[in-house]
Design a protein around this nucleic acid. Structure first.
Lengths: 189, 189, 189, 189
DNA sequence: AATGAATGAGGATTCATTCAT
DNA sequence: AATGAATGAATCCTCATTCAT
């Protein structure tokens, strides 16, 4: 159920993300979300059937928007260039939006996540798979399973972004290139 | 008099790990832990001051034992061989002990983790750093920061292990070699 | 919206006093207070942060109201008359409200009492001190320390009230006069 | 049940009194009593059937011994002299043994006190009653009910002792005389 | 008799959700 | 639609007591 007041929903989403960023998912209370969003406790239930549905909505929205931002306007570029742009965009996103990143990570291991969202193989993943297939056809990427290649890219990216956030470092062009270069050495044919 | 029982602690630890594996950390109840371990609720509190202390003890023990198992008897081997053995051991551990892996992952983002355990720079990490330094001296590993190299190794490993567990796949010699080969291509000089 | 309800607070206070009167402070359970007050367990916590805060609120309110009732409309009367009126009012209060008296006595030695309430030098005490000072100036009361005089008055009163309650006796004009007369013989110049 | 080891019982009693003096009756735990007395938890149950029985034993013993100390070697003296000696002894006892005094006061309003101990009209009380009767016969004490006279004496004494303890004052000959003088003025014929 | 680990009933508190206004 | 006071099931932890050694 999601009637008119789109602004209120945004405020609620923002509250969830902000509070998770500071206190983790386990500390999230509906009362706190309501206060932070500037609405009454009961109002949350006008927009979402339950806490579970609210959090799953935030997750779903973040996944969608995140994917869009990362692949925005890069198709038709060469494979390696696209990969680099995705790499840099992702790194920036994870480092500049730590609250959102924390929410996504925590939610994935929380008891709230729905089966649907568990399966949610993000569009990003599908886009990436196609890109890797193209790379293999062009013989510039190793002919290995997508899962293996994707594990390397996303696993490395996540851990590196973590490191940068924990040490209060920014994403410079240099850092983006250096780290991507490592990934590329791994997957290039 | 019955002496405080090491076996009972093991049973409690095993109960925590098993239950976290099935229901996640957020669903962990002291009552369930007690029942699973075959003791009374109150008994948990003769061994641990609180739920928090119990979980932190499990975490600490798992980190210690895990690190030992991974580097067992590999020093004095060449750098690349050591790295491969560590890779294979880690992969096997994470895939064959999914409950332990889940506990470790969930606990790290739970509200229970103590400051001490947050800082717990596992011995494994320090051992790995030294190994990478040696590799750089031998000019077989890229002269990049350890953080970058370690992010790649551990990030990739974690994600790949996840993939294997989620798809019910075992760690074969082939899979270990194939995945390590990717990592090596990334970090080799 | 239902506004926070003053009546509900009164009901909760009354429940605390009634239950303490019958079972003592140590037997007080939040569940029983809630049932007696006709509210849910959780409701107690919308009005008071904890059991401790609830009991301290009851204590504070009883002290305030009690003091007011005792000195109501007696200033400007001669010292001895005022003392007698206070004596009679106090005696009646302690005998006619045994539950409140029990609560006050038990709470003072309970682990719940706050530092603030421990210090709470009741207005009654200050009023009494001024009155005794006046009596000394008028040379009708012995020139001794207020503490000594007050100990006699309040200590005797408390024990005598106790005796009356325990033997199911009422406060008659005669008993009030007789007992006050003893006190007066002690402190008069 | 109270077999041989009288010393152990003394240690347990002392532990109860000491711990009540510092933490109040409500904070008393059998485990703490055992540790303070230097015995095992279970040992307490070799000497006393329950916590209730233990505390009631302490109370009973304190009442007996206290009474003896107060009236020791004073019979055959004149009434007023006896009263003064009792007054001074009591005052000293209550001020010099605050832990015992606290135990006695707290226990009286605790849920542990047995019916027998509630009724325990201490021998002291009976001795005092006889003394007051003698004083009335000698026409030096007002012909009022013993309860009234006793309330004044014991109530005043208790409150005054409290005041002295709370202000860290000692019982000097002067203070004993001054306070007794007030009491005497109240009850003398 | 003494020990102290183990027991488990009992009680304070939390928080997602409801519903009268 | 919005409000927020009220609800009460759920859960951690305590501590008097037991009993195998």
């Amino acid at each position: 159920m999601r009637p008119k007041d789109e602004q209120k929903i945004e405020a609620i989403f923002a509250a969830v993300i902000k509070l998770t960023g500071s206190g983790g998912i386990a500390g999230l209370k509906m009362t706190d979300i309501a206060r932070e969003a500037g609405v009454a406790d009961g109002t949350l239930y006008t927009y979402f059937r339950s806490k579970e549905e609210l959090l799953n909505s935030v997750y779903y929205q973040l996944k969608q928007k995140g994917a869009l931002a990362i692949v925005d306007g890069i198709d038709h570029l060469p494979v390696k260039v696209q990969l680099y742009k995705m790499w840099k965009n992702s790194l920036k996103y994870q480092v500049n939006e730590p609250a959102k990143t924390i929410f996504l990570e925590h939610f994935k291991v929380s008891p709230f996540i729905s089966e649907d969202n568990k399966k949610l193989s993000q569009q990003l993943g599908q886009y990436l798979e196609k890109l890797l297939e193209r790379g293999k056809e062009e013989m510039i990427i190793k002919p290995l399973s997508n899962e293996l290649l994707i594990s390397l890219l996303t696993g490395f990216l996540k851990d590196y972004a973590h490191y940068l956030v924990n040490h209060d470092l920014e994403v410079t062009e240099n850092k983006a290139e250096e780290s991507f270069s490592l990934s590329w050495d791994a997957i290039k044919a």
